[in-house]
Measured scan of single mutants.
Amino acid sequence: NQESVVAAVLIPINTALTVGMMTTRVVSPTGIPAEDIPRLISMQVNQVVPMGTTLMPDMVKGYAP
């Protein structure tokens, strides 16, 4: 099972992602793959992401799977 990126904290809208904001977990449905965390650093979320929420591609500005 592939791990997906999950919010480790509440991430406010338009916040640039940092390593500490993200964790990984096997979830269903799957979100952004864990191995993409290095690509996500400094990208901004386009909505509020509650802690424990799986990051989906459409939540991150400029992210393309």
Rank of each mutant, 00 (worst) to 15 (best):
58 D>C: 13
6 V>E: 04
24 T>H: 11
17 L>N: 01
1 N>R: 02
4 S>Q: 03
8 A>L: 13
48 V>L: 12
18 T>P: 01
15 T>Q: 07
2 Q>A: 13
51 M>I: 14
1 N>S: 14
18 T>C: 04
7 A>I: 02
62 G>V: 04
35 E>H: 06
53 T>N: 15
54 T>H: 02
26 V>T: 11
38 P>W: 05
54 T>M: 06
55 L>M: 13
62 G>H: 11
22 M>K: 01
61 K>H: 13
17 L>R: 01
24 T>L: 05
1 N>I: 05
18 T>G: 07
36 D>T: 09
7 A>D: 00
25 R>A: 13
56 M>L: 10
44 Q>I: 10
16 A>T: 14
39 R>F: 07
8 A>V: 10
64 A>W: 05
28 S>L: 09
49 V>G: 00
52 G>C: 09
9 V>Q: 12
45 V>K: 00
36 D>F: 08
42 S>E: 13
1 N>V: 06
22 M>V: 09
22 M>Y: 02
63 Y>I: 09
61 K>D: 15
18 T>F: 10
39 R>V: 03
8 A>H: 15
2 Q>D: 15
21 M>A: 06
20 G>R: 07
50 P>M: 11
3 E>Y: 07
5 V>M: 03
11 I>G: 00
21 M>S: 06
14 N>Y: 11
54 T>E: 02
41 I>W: 08
57 P>S: 11
7 A>P: 00
5 V>N: 00
40 L>W: 02
38 P>C: 06
53 T>A: 13
36 D>E: 12
7 A>S: 15
29 P>E: 06
52 G>D: 13
4 S>D: 00
41 I>P: 02
13 I>W: 06
63 Y>R: 05
50 P>W: 08
13 I>V: 15
51 M>P: 12
21 M>Y: 09
37 I>Y: 11
11 I>S: 00
24 T>P: 07
9 V>W: 05
12 P>Q: 13
59 M>F: 09
57 P>Y: 11
56 M>A: 06
50 P>H: 10
55 L>Q: 00
34 A>V: 14
26 V>S: 12
37 I>F: 09
46 N>D: 07
5 V>H: 00
19 V>D: 08
11 I>N: 00
47 Q>I: 05
15 T>I: 08
4 S>Y: 12
24 T>F: 10
31 G>P: 01
31 G>A: 07
24 T>R: 08
27 V>S: 15
63 Y>E: 03
64 A>T: 13
43 M>D: 14
